[in-house]
Design a binder for these strands. Sequence first.
DNA 1: GTGAAAGCGCTAACAG
DNA 2: CTGTTAGCGCTTTCAC
Lengths: 344, 344
Amino acid sequence: MDKKLGKSARVGIRDVAAAAGVSPTTVSHALSGARAINPATRARVLEVAQELGYSPDLRARGLRSSRTFTVGLLSDTIAVTPYAGLIISGAQDAAAEHQSVVLALDSTGDPQRELLGIRTLLDHRVDGLVYARMSHQSVNVPKELGEIPVVLANASSPDLKFSSVVPDEKQIGLDATGHLLSFGHQRVGFATVNENVPSALGREEGYRSAMRAAGIAVNEAWVCAKTGDAAGGREAGRLILDREDRPTAIFCFNDEIAMGVYQAANDLGLRIPEDLSVIGVDDLQLITQALVPTLSTIALPHYQMGHWAVSQLFTQATAQNGARIAEKLRCHLVQRESVKAPRS
Amino acid sequence: MDKKLGKSARVGIRDVAAAAGVSPTTVSHALSGARAINPATRARVLEVAQELGYSPDLRARGLRSSRTFTVGLLSDTIAVTPYAGLIISGAQDAAAEHQSVVLALDSTGDPQRELLGIRTLLDHRVDGLVYARMSHQSVNVPKELGEIPVVLANASSPDLKFSSVVPDEKQIGLDATGHLLSFGHQRVGFATVNENVPSALGREEGYRSAMRAAGIAVNEAWVCAKTGDAAGGREAGRLILDREDRPTAIFCFNDEIAMGVYQAANDLGLRIPEDLSVIGVDDLQLITQALVPTLSTIALPHYQMGHWAVSQLFTQATAQNGARIAEKLRCHLVQRESVKAPRS
DNA sequence: GTGAAAGCGCTAACAG
DNA sequence: CTGTTAGCGCTTTCAC
């Protein structure tokens, strides 16, 4: 009424207060529910706010209550896969459940950029931070992050100070191999990557455990570690398959390798799934749905990890128990057409 | 000195001021460079700030200067492709050039969620907003966005109020077809999608223009529109290739269709590139690098669109010229192994 | 159940 | 070149 200066300034809490005939304090509480308000007053305030198109200024709110309703997400994205999008998506959804949003930044793996990113996120006073990796790995959390709550996604750290969430790699190996065994396969191969990363280690451990549990001795000629792309899969596939006592099924470290194994099988005149069953890991639909036959696979839980990490951030903020937890997410099997009982 | 209450509260501008023996105002200006400061004072202030580990509170800054250094990015992501990540990545980089960050939200195509997202972004007082689509389409910008600067990415709008950036679809058709023609192909087919979207329309127009310009009559049996995935590509490929006067080259609407065409060719005993040249669009490395032979393609500029959109947002904010511009980005050819001169 | 006053951390006016 | 004062929009004391 008195403060209409020139153009219609944004409607603020006091405009609502004036229009509703109450004090700004009451409006604040009516909106936030932070203290008891006469239901009638409250209803009127809400109505007026709606009418005036009031939109709370989260900056101002945060300035006073020292929360920004913003969580940071720092990743090392190199965007050839949909993983980044999935983790971010999961993080967003979890954040939304707490009226918050996600400020995502990627470092491109460059430590300098990462530091800059951290600084930026800190300047924006994010309420917490998810430190994420696109492929499962062990990381050292930059010490600049000491000031705020941090949760690791798709990464683990020797530092027990942080909660973390990763796929249960061994279980992946167990499930994938078990799936093949359950169809009656005895000679099951493993096409993996030649890197010492948790995923390779864990999946191989699962593979060997499953075989052992089934009473089958692994023939080392069935196991081959090359690069983690289709070329590596072709190479591994050729080595594993081009022999008399070839396996009747191959567990592939990922879908790209599986695609390479398809190609190798095709070159050798082997038909999938009649002559060879194949299972991958990742569930990259661009691959799994496009191959003929479509590829059975273990889906990696990127969305879930993003979601879990942010949820955990809020849990830690609320409960003062301070319990840090290292979560391993069970991954689920997506059955398609590439696995079938062996001929024999 | 006097305000050390309990624990070390965050160091603020006045702590720096006290330590450097100047006023908060001077510190503010020393940091922002908004007005001339004695170089010596400035240096001292900066040093002290560094020493104390001062980190500006962007909320407070924004509250006063009515900028948040935050831009919103609203998309319809369904994350099976890396596109979302790429657009966001480009947007982030452009934002960083203006000391800003990106608040990304996706609506999953749900109008209700979209509205909620808009409200959230507005409450966070983003300085501007990129309205993005993962696949090129025409959109109507929700009227709730009337209040702030908006730029469209990978989308165009009948409403000329908005700047927009899209791939130059016709040019893609021209370049892809031209590339095949330049190798001496005369019979060039086109495997596309059966949808009335700008990409399909534009690429077909480019294809036909290029053929016309080369003086070649398009045989309609060479053109086939099915779904935009590998299955569609297989179907189209079979129809186009299973005939005597088959084309010697096929321009595919996207890489997935191209993958399907590979499969169809394989089924028919046709070798690529000896018997058939293939070119795609998208440059999804998961596919282009994995196929044998590797797939030549026209790369879609998702990163660049994200970058352009955010840059344009800042340009519009600065220059008051208010000129809205509809940008078409030229896409570049990525040559790999799937194109070769025809046998004949 | 409600209000008045103070202030979050910063920058924009207005001095000098 | 520098300092003082006021206030961004909200929530939080503290009062009634």
